[in-house]
């Protein structure tokens, strides 16, 4: 098995597609849709890579990323942020919060697989 991925995303069809895609590559995918406790789930599950959507119910992806970075249990975890907003200020906010890779939707399946693979190394 390649490792564990925490997928924090509230669009169920994106979760289905990404889970299928990554599981075929040997990853164990844990999906979580609620922003409120996402950082705690990351600390509890200890994934190898976190995929995080920017727009989530109850808490923004940027805020969750800050919490992940502030927690010593998750501070070093690689985080791939997904957003449909590719605007410069969103990208700047994500970088300031400590994102590892920032990817805009729509993305190619191969790009996701390659990025997750490189982040896990």
């Amino acid at each position: 098995m390649a490792g564990k991925i925490l997928l924090i995303e509230d669009e169920p069809h994106i979760v289905e597609a990404l889970s299928f895609l990554l599981e075929r590559e040997g990853w164990q995918v844990v999906a979580h849709s609620n922003g409120a406790d996402a950082a705690q789930v990351a600390a509890l599950r200890q994934p190898d890579v976190i995929i995080l959507d920017v727009m989530l119910p109850n808490k923004s992806g940027i805020e969750i990323l800050r919490e992940i970075r502030a927690n010593t249990q998750t501070a070093q975890k690689p985080v791939l942020m997904l957003t449909a907003k590719g605007q410069a200020r969103d990208r700047a906010a994500a970088q300031e919060a400590g994102v590892s890779v920032f990817m805009t939707k729509p993305f190619s399946n191969q790009a996701i697989i390659d990025t997750v693979r490189s982040l896990a190394q």
């Binding site: 994106i14 990404l18 449909a84 399946n109």
Partner: peptide, 9 residues
Amino acid sequence: LSNITVIRS
């Protein structure tokens, strides 16, 4: 963009 992401993927 979210709709297109699902369809494309």
